[in-house]
Design a protein around this nucleic acid. Structure first.
Lengths: 189, 189
DNA sequence: TTGCTAGACTAACAAGTGTTAGTTAAAGAT
DNA sequence: ATCTTTAACTAACACTTGTTAGTCTAGCAA
């Protein structure tokens, strides 16, 4: 595996700080200190603070969009599609807990990429909603308000980045199984 | 009903801006502009930006703590306690969608009140966890990992502030019923 | 009328902001 | 050995930050 470039390292450390304090509260001097250099030196590797946020958020958003399209176009039953979505969120959240924080909390500070991000996010939510609606039509899932189902699942999945790092020796497969179970079957005995 | 003081108005408007951009990205000049005055004039009514955040977050946190204690000490069955918690979140989130955003996203910028806030939050989560665990012991709810159940419910409830304002003519009772239903019974047909 | 108060204002400060320019030292290429 | 590139540095910039000090004016109490 190709080792991390200095630029990639800066992006990774930036995402870590953004998770802790939020984009606006992190200064380039904070970031430089964490990197063991002076703020001005960062600019040998990156172009701006703004660009750091852009690349952190959009690289993840694009992964979500691409994988969601695969799930949507498969011909699995609805419950399987929902389980796949759970697995997708767990995978991306555990690969990049820092970046997920920016995606969730600092997207409004995207500059020229804000519209692009919103387009991706809306597309993702539309696909998710369609899967739920089709599942209701086919009587594969219960006939509750699809907006509430979407909201409930999506917010749980979006918060995984907060929860995953607290669990040491996380088994992705078993978490994925348990969480799908709870989200789909409920918790009633 | 007693009409809003100027100080209360500033706190309310501040919370609105904090929701939109986050605490750190909102300047006192932004807040002043929204209030139709100059930044310095704000200080005739408030002591500091920090104190705005403190009072926004802690007033809500204290309400949660108090109401959770009532629910915990009632002798309702587990499913009813969980429904009560859902209702509590819906009530507080719809009364104060702005403040809930700060509570969720900007608590780390609390100054001298940070420890107090964390104590309240941990107490709240402990109570919630206890209710779930007792429900599992009494076989009132399914025997899944209580941490995952807690996480799943709590993150959904914590995100209500994002979702509630999007629904015009919101009926709190019917939302409360639907959401409890989905969280407890699941969505399987 | 006179005096007091509430609540706005202007001006300013010291500290911190992202970023640029120019310099320097070490490592790699010729 | 000389040249070039990389990646650090110092110094500085123009601007923004939260906040304070001091002033002014309209409304009310005496």
């Amino acid at each position: 595996m190709k080792s991390e470039t200095r630029q990639e390292e800066i992006i990774r450390v930036a995402a870590k700080l953004f998770k802790k304090k939020g984009y606006s509260a992190v200064t380039m001097r904070d970031l430089a200190k964490e990197m063991g250099m002076k703020a001005a030196s960062l600019y040998n590797h990156i172009n701006s603070k703004q660009e750091l946020l852009n690349s952190i958020i959009l690289s993840i958003a694009e992964q979500f969009t691409e994988e969601m399209s695969n799930i949507k176009n498969s011909n699995s039953p609805t419950a399987q599609k929902l389980t796949d979505i759970v697995e997708l969120h767990i995978k991306l959240a555990s690969e990049n807990t820092y970046g997920m924080a920016s995606l969730n909390n600092d997207w409004m500070h995207l500059g020229d990429q804000l519209q692009h991000y919103l387009t991706l996010r809306n597309g993702y939510e539309d696909d998710f909603r369609d899967i739920i609606k089709k599942g209701i039509e086919n009587k594969e899932i219960v006939n509750e308000n699809p907006e509430i189902i979407l909201f409930s699942m999506l917010t749980t999945l979006r918060s995984l980045y907060l929860w995953i790092p607290k669990k040491e020796n996380l088994d992705i497969n078993s978490l994925s199984k348990s969480l799908s179970q709870i989200l789909i079957q409920g918790i009633d005995a």
